[in-house]
């Protein structure tokens, strides 16, 4: 048995201290230890972006990060973005512009899109497509996702 690692990770503003196996991936820490199942596992091979969260403000594929690496970091998941009655402008954009069908890619897509607008509040269509290049959607054909991001950019996204 390998030695456990003690991690202290702030998730959506709340500090979680736990002993974890070093090989525990951040996505499993979020889903299985904290019950935050909004972050999805699509491919498990670092390709699809369904597992995207923010680590210290920057988007990352949580299936490709060990929980131990996030020790001392602030993590934001889709659960930390808006709420049912108070949607984040990006969530509102996905709602208004039909940016989803099955919804499997949506949490990761939204985290990537927010990351984009944080860096580039008024992206061109090309920049939007590049900004979500790390996220795959098997349903929408991306057109409505681009429109959703444009909607949020119009409204102005605040962190």
């Amino acid at each position: 048995m390998s030695e456990k690692a003690t991690v202290s990770i702030t998730v959506n503003g709340k500090v979680h201290e736990e002993e974890v196996e070093p090989r525990l991936l951040l996505v499993h820490f979020l889903r299985e230890h904290l019950g935050l199942t909004g972050t999805h596992v699509g491919c498990d091979t670092s390709q699809c972006g369904a597992c995207t969260v923010h680590i210290d403000g920057a988007s990352a594929k949580s299936c490709t990060v060990f929980a131990a690496q996030a020790d001392g970091s602030e993590v934001t998941t889709i659960e930390g973005v808006g709420s049912q009655d108070n949607l984040h402008p990006m969530q509102e954009g996905f709602w208004e512009e039909h940016g989803l069908q099955c919804g499997y890619c949506t949490p990761g897509m939204i985290m990537s899109a927010i990351n984009l607008l944080n860096e580039n509040p008024k992206p061109t269509e090309k920049e939007i497509r590049e900004g979500i290049a790390g996220n795959l959607c098997r349903c929408t054909g991306y057109q409505h996702i681009v429109k959703a991001v444009q909607y949020a950019a119009e409204k102005g996204v605040v962190r």
Partner: peptide, 9 residues
């Protein structure tokens, strides 16, 4: 290189 998430890490 890769995509935004890859470039962040």
């Amino acid at each position: 290189i890769g995509d935004p998430q890859v470039r962040n890490r």
